[in-house]
Design a binder for these strands. Structure first.
Lengths: 162, 162
DNA sequence: CTAGGACCTCAACTATGGTTGAGGTCAACC
DNA sequence: GGTTGACCTCAACCATAGTTGAGGTCCTAG
């Protein structure tokens, strides 16, 4: 379908072409509650133009490393029943901005530690700051909880010590 | 098993406790070729002490956002048949450091764009730098290829235009 | 009025990074 | 020498983020 000049609505193919995401991805986002559409009598999706902004926002947030679930929660916090305003988007993006800043700080910290710590081989030492994580980025499960030395002669923890 | 004082080798439980990763994860890493072990007569794994360094390195690299596959490639590029030296680790970590710096640069760029671009609502404009991606972080498939305006009155591309 | 492209649903499949459980063996302590 | 905890394999399962394909319908242009 080409864009409907009268109603200003878009078919899914239009949205895919104009947003750069695959039709299957739009279906997927809709299943996940990130997008919504109305249907024609023939059961085909019609989108309001604001869907393009939503899709842009989703892709952008993903780049920043935010999961679809979190994105969905943020989007669903938008005022219901009306097209989000610039102010709505700005509020959300400020939140993303802060998250982003945190991630940058975490990575920067990690980078500095990497130079000072692994670079010198102390990856093997229990005192290593990197390996006793502040866990800036530890988003994969409980993750690393404890790291000890593996050099002979250094103090060894008792077997039952955590 | 507690650590073997005579041979200096470690059982999988020791490695798990001391590295902070689950036994199942060590199995998994071994299946993926990231770790290796010898076996006792009773088919139980025995690890050299250097495995702790490898595990630390793997977890660290993951934090930096490197996939297990890439980590495996880097590890397999280590000189064969000998325990990696501090210099080997340093070479690898320098590579990670550079990757990390790139990611930081990308995120920083994104953060600045976020303030200047979404913050002002121009997410909807085709000229938006963010939405015509340099794709610093676009690691999810072909990803966004094209983003256009969705405001009435602006130029609209022909239907067959990409 | 018919051909063909666009669209529909649903199920299955991909890859990553693991975890969980069943069923069985090993080994160390009493 | 038996009990118990640590270990083994293998298969199945979880979540995330989608993609692919089968089988069928819609709709628009010629």
């Amino acid at each position: 379908m080409a864009e409907d000049g009268r109603t200003g609505t878009l078919g899914i193919g239009d949205v895919a072409r104009r947003s750069g995401v695959a039709v299957s991805t739009l279906h997927f986002y809709e299943r996940k509650g990130l997008l919504s559409s109305t249907r024609t009598g023939g059961n085909q999706r019609r989108y309001e133009r604001d869907v393009l902004r939503r899709v842009s926002f989703i892709r952008l947030a993903q780049k920043v490393g935010i999961s679809l679930q979190e994105i969905g929660e943020a989007l669903s916090a938008l005022p219901e029943g009306r097209t989000p305003t610039v102010a709505d988007w700005a509020r959300l993006s400020r939140q993303w901005h802060d998250d982003l800043q945190e991630r940058i700080d975490g990575l920067t910290h990690l980078r500095d530690d990497l130079l000072g710590c692994i670079g010198c081989g102390c990856l093997s030492l229990r005192s290593c700051a990197l390996l006793n994580p502040g866990d800036e980025l530890g988003r994969h499960g409980p993750g690393a909880r404890r790291w000890v030395e593996d050099e002979p002669g250094a103090r060894r923890p008792a077997a039952d010590e955590r």
